[in-house]
Amino acid sequence: MNRDSRYLESVLHHDIPLTREMGLKVLSWQDHQLRLHLPLAANINHKSTLFGGSLYCGAVLAGWGWLHMRLREAGVEDGHIVIQEGHISYPLPVTQDAIVLCDAPADAAWSKFLTMYKRYGRARLSLDTRVINAEGADDAVRFTGQYVLHR
């Protein structure tokens, strides 16, 4: 775990205490991709799979964490990030620990987001998150979230 990962995990565990109970860990922040770990044991349901609510929370947090880290790199530290809207699908069960991934949006979308925030003090960005089983490659969960940054 590098310094950026430790920093984000500390922020999440302090500002969103639920993340501690979920056992959420930040695996990496590298090349504008955020990878989180969500353990099955702390989030198991009655079917011995990862609880859908925990998966939703992990997906939202991956987008929130991605935006937090990217804004930090851009030197933007005066805003508040909130999730405005989210859409999720669960094509496969998560039967083991989960890896939650959030990749960068298109460069044009990021540039427009920063320009809007600097100009108006408010901007929206859509981020895609996916969840895979720790030993798998196929998307078990797909999430698209609309995040708002405001002063």
Rank of each mutant, 00 (worst) to 15 (best):
N2C: 07
C57P: 00
Q84G: 09
R3L: 13
S5R: 12
I81S: 07
P105L: 04
F113G: 05
L61N: 05
S89Q: 10
V131Q: 10
L34F: 04
K25L: 12
A108W: 01
R35C: 15
S48Y: 04
S48V: 11
P93H: 05
V148N: 00
D97F: 11
L50W: 06
M116W: 06
V148C: 00
A42W: 03
A108S: 12
D139M: 04
Y120F: 12
L114Q: 03
S5Y: 13
Q30F: 08
H37R: 15
V148T: 01
H150N: 02
D128A: 15
E135G: 10
V94I: 10
H32S: 14
T95Q: 06
E77G: 01
G65P: 08
L27N: 14
K47N: 10
P39Q: 09
R20N: 13
R6G: 09
K25H: 12
D103C: 09
R72Q: 11
V82F: 05
L92N: 13
S48R: 14
E9K: 11
G53L: 07
D128F: 06
D128C: 10
Q33F: 09
W29G: 11
H37E: 15
W29P: 04
N133H: 03
E135P: 00
H68T: 07
G65T: 11
V94T: 02
F143K: 00
P91F: 04
G79A: 09
Q96K: 09
G136E: 09
N133W: 02
I81N: 07
D97G: 15
R130S: 14
D107I: 10
A137R: 15
D31Y: 06
D15F: 08
W29L: 14
R6E: 15
V60F: 02
V76S: 04
P39A: 06
L101D: 13
A137Q: 14
D139L: 02
L125W: 06
S10C: 05
Q30C: 07
V148H: 00
R3F: 09
K47Q: 14
H80K: 11
L149N: 10
H13I: 01
D103P: 03
M22T: 08
T129K: 01
A98Y: 00
R3A: 14
S10E: 07
V60E: 04
D128P: 12
E73Y: 05
G63V: 05
E85Y: 03
I99K: 12
P17N: 05
S126A: 03
E77I: 02
S89K: 07
E85N: 08
A41V: 15
G63M: 03
A42M: 13
G145F: 01
F143D: 12
F143V: 05
L101I: 15
E73I: 03
D139S: 11
L55E: 05
L24S: 13
N2L: 05
L38D: 05
E85A: 07
L34E: 05
Y7S: 01
E85G: 00
G23L: 14
Q84H: 06
L50V: 15
S126Q: 03
S5A: 15
H37F: 15
I88N: 01
R70P: 00
A104M: 06
W29R: 08
V76C: 08
A106S: 14
N133A: 15
V82C: 02
T115V: 08
A106I: 07
V141P: 08
T49M: 11
A108F: 04
K118L: 09
T49S: 12
L27A: 14
R3Y: 10
I83V: 15
H32D: 13
T144M: 06
T129I: 03
